[in-house]
Write a protein that binds this DNA or RNA. Structure first.
Lengths: 153, 153
DNA sequence: TATAGAATTGACGTAAACGTAAGGGTGCAA
DNA sequence: TTGCACCCTTACGTTTACGTCAATTCTATA
């Protein structure tokens, strides 16, 4: 059974033969499309974040999987753990207002935002400290005619 | 053989009986003084970052060890790996201008500074993205009378 | 002297998100 | 038929800086 020959895959328009939304892609194309490795996609699946169909043993990713992957990548970008992402996504219910999901997401987001701001503060701190000691080191290098070392004493 | 009774340890002024600089402290006090665990101190020693004297099997930290620990903690704070810290400290030579050490330190520092700035940029990015999606989620929560979910589709 | 408070050396465990083989299958073009 | 290009599962390895026992010993003090 054939789905998309690797060559013409990019030229794939809208087939829409399948009710669930056509354009099934295999793992290689999926990976290329989103800049991740095959291992990553399989890993996400293993962790319950993705659930592609199968043709025999071959994974086939649908539009839905792509949407989920986008969310995962966004989550990862803003610093959520995969566990968090999973928790939030698991609450998604196509029928319903998803209030719980949204609330949880908002809650986690607030906490994550706080973490990020803290991290930024730490990094700013580190940058300052580092800049200071760099200045000191430069000092010592320029006046290294006077042999007093004061770094490791 | 007794060194410092845990109680009066804090009231320890300058003994200076030993040529190498007195005020030897054991690991417990050392840890308390610098806010690290015993495990950490032993770990640093294991990695060749510290080299306390011994009284039998008991570690005794000198002024020199304290200075080194301070450096380690500073390095850690600005994001150096322990390996980096060790490399830099290993070049320290009490007799000499330490030009090599200083150059290496400066070199590593520049790279680390670049990494920190990159990280800050990433975090700023993340903060922005997160803020945006939070706004979107809030939107959806306020207008959740209209049951169109658009998060996980 | 009994006991509590330090210290010691091992040595396995942890976290996160994959990397990296190893070994094997399928389909298609030359 | 050979040879790629893909795909699969299983499973150990990686990284960093320690955490967490476990079993034992030392020492000071009441």
């Amino acid at each position: 059974m054939k789905f998309v020959s690797p060559g013409e895959a990019a030229a794939n328009t809208n087939d829409m033969s399948d009710k669930a939304g056509g354009d099934l892609v295999r793992i290689g194309e999926m990976a290329k499309k989103y800049g991740v490795t095959l291992r990553t996609l399989r890993f996400y699946e293993d962790k319950g974040l993705l659930n592609p169909q199968r043709d025999g043993s071959t994974r086939l990713y649908t539009r839905r999987d792509k949407a989920r992957l986008k969310l995962i990548l966004l989550g990862r970008k803003v610093g959520f753990s995969l566990r968090d992402v999973k928790q939030m996504m698991d609450l998604y219910d196509p029928t319903g207002s998803n209030t719980k999901q949204l609330r949880l997401t908002l809650d986690k987001s607030e906490k994550q935002l706080a973490r990020l701001q803290k991290q930024r503060a730490l990094i700013d701190d580190a940058i300052n400290e580092l800049s200071n000691s760099m200045a000191a080191v430069r000092q010592m290098l320029t006046e290294r005619s006077a042999p007093q070392a004061s770094v490791a004493r």
